[in-house]
Amino acid sequence: MKRWIAIAAVLAVACVLPLLLSPTGYWIRVLTFTLLFAAMAQAWNIIGGLANQTSLGHAAFFGIGAYTSTLLLLKFGISPWLGMLAGGVLGGVAALIIAIPTMRLQGHYFALATLAFGEVMRVIANVWAPLTGGPVGISVPFVPPNFLGYSFKQLLPHAYIALAALVIVTAIFEVIRRGAMGYRLRAIKENPAAAEVIGIDTTKVKLQTAVISGVLMAMLGTLYAQVAVFFDPDTVFNAASISIRVALIAILGGVGTAIGPILGALFIVPVEELMNDLFSSGAAGLSQLIFGIILIAVILWRPRGFITVFDALKARLTGARS
């Protein structure tokens, strides 16, 4: 009961907060990207937290989703809502293609294989200029503001769409974690050999989680494209700003937990923007240096993520009651 009250309170705050910000201001944009990256980290958390496979290639699925919806709108006038579904299908296919030969890899071998796949997609998008625009990039065409066309005058609707996406992805994560697939994944995480002995098809289960994660990541790429309006291959297929960033958000918040990616995004995105706002006019790279120092300090303080803060508080409260 207490958990549901806490969830309802968080959702209430999340629904009211966008209304307190200027609909065309800087911080509503920061809030929108915070919610979006929290959803992206949650999608990564399905494979990284539940399947225990550290993927560094999720930018490939993200970029596929962004380009698919935008190209369908540009060339055929198809609504981004439908383009999002098409991008999700292509993202799932891409996830399956890369997962089949790599799912038996473990640790850094799997991470490097997925990182290489993401870089290959970035190179292809840069070279295939007649379709993607290459390094010049691509712009989302303007259409008259309307919900069915996924076009709005202000950022406020985008913030609520990102919030809805976060809720949906988190619900999918929880359904998997609490369901039969979640039990299988925990068994595989603890001892893959023992899981095989008791009849769990470890490869099949990991493939399923990879495809689900890839589909969600690609669909979130459409949301990013509609907010950013302009992007290029080095933006949406970028390993550092997408793949590594979403993994860092999930790990810093508490990997394998539903609240972890949300906590990580609430810290990383606003603090990074604040550092850029305060120190970008100083020496070159100063804002990134200060942000890096803050990250190192936080990781040293809570190496298992922000979720441990809540665990510690819960333990103290339980001890006080006793």
Rank of each mutant, 00 (worst) to 15 (best):
residue 297 A to H: 05
residue 78 I to D: 11
residue 321 R to C: 02
residue 312 A to T: 15
residue 128 W to H: 08
residue 138 I to Y: 00
residue 5 I to K: 10
residue 151 S to D: 12
residue 231 F to L: 10
residue 33 F to H: 03
residue 214 G to T: 13
residue 275 M to L: 10
residue 10 V to E: 00
residue 131 L to N: 04
residue 54 T to E: 01
residue 208 Q to V: 12
residue 113 A to M: 00
residue 111 A to K: 03
residue 181 M to Q: 12
residue 90 L to E: 13
residue 81 W to D: 06
residue 256 G to A: 07
residue 92 G to D: 03
residue 9 A to C: 11
residue 131 L to M: 14
residue 239 A to W: 02
residue 95 A to F: 00
residue 3 R to L: 04
residue 191 N to G: 07
residue 31 L to G: 00
residue 284 A to R: 15
residue 190 E to V: 10
residue 31 L to T: 01
residue 139 S to D: 07
residue 245 R to T: 15
residue 179 G to Y: 07
residue 163 L to Y: 06
residue 187 A to K: 02
residue 149 G to F: 08
residue 206 K to V: 12
residue 145 P to Q: 11
residue 104 R to N: 15
residue 281 S to A: 13
residue 315 A to F: 10
residue 316 R to L: 13
residue 91 G to N: 14
residue 195 A to V: 09
residue 237 F to H: 06
residue 202 T to E: 01
residue 256 G to I: 01
residue 146 N to A: 15
residue 112 L to F: 12
residue 113 A to F: 00
residue 8 A to K: 11
residue 320 A to D: 05
residue 217 M to F: 08
residue 221 G to W: 12
residue 204 K to G: 05
residue 239 A to E: 02
residue 300 L to Y: 14
residue 188 I to T: 02
residue 187 A to R: 01
residue 228 A to W: 09
residue 54 T to L: 13
residue 219 M to C: 06
residue 244 I to K: 01
residue 61 F to W: 05
residue 4 W to Y: 15
residue 308 T to C: 09
residue 12 A to C: 11
residue 141 P to I: 04
residue 141 P to T: 01
residue 70 T to W: 12
residue 157 P to N: 02
residue 278 L to S: 10
residue 81 W to K: 01
residue 73 L to F: 15
residue 242 I to C: 02
residue 260 G to E: 05
residue 82 L to Y: 15
residue 58 H to T: 14
residue 237 F to I: 05
residue 89 V to Q: 01
residue 31 L to H: 01
residue 209 T to G: 02
residue 245 R to E: 15
residue 74 L to P: 04
residue 195 A to R: 06
residue 113 A to Q: 00
residue 101 P to F: 04
residue 171 A to C: 07
residue 229 V to E: 04
residue 314 K to G: 10
residue 148 L to T: 14
residue 143 V to P: 05
residue 188 I to S: 00
residue 19 L to Q: 09
residue 28 I to M: 13
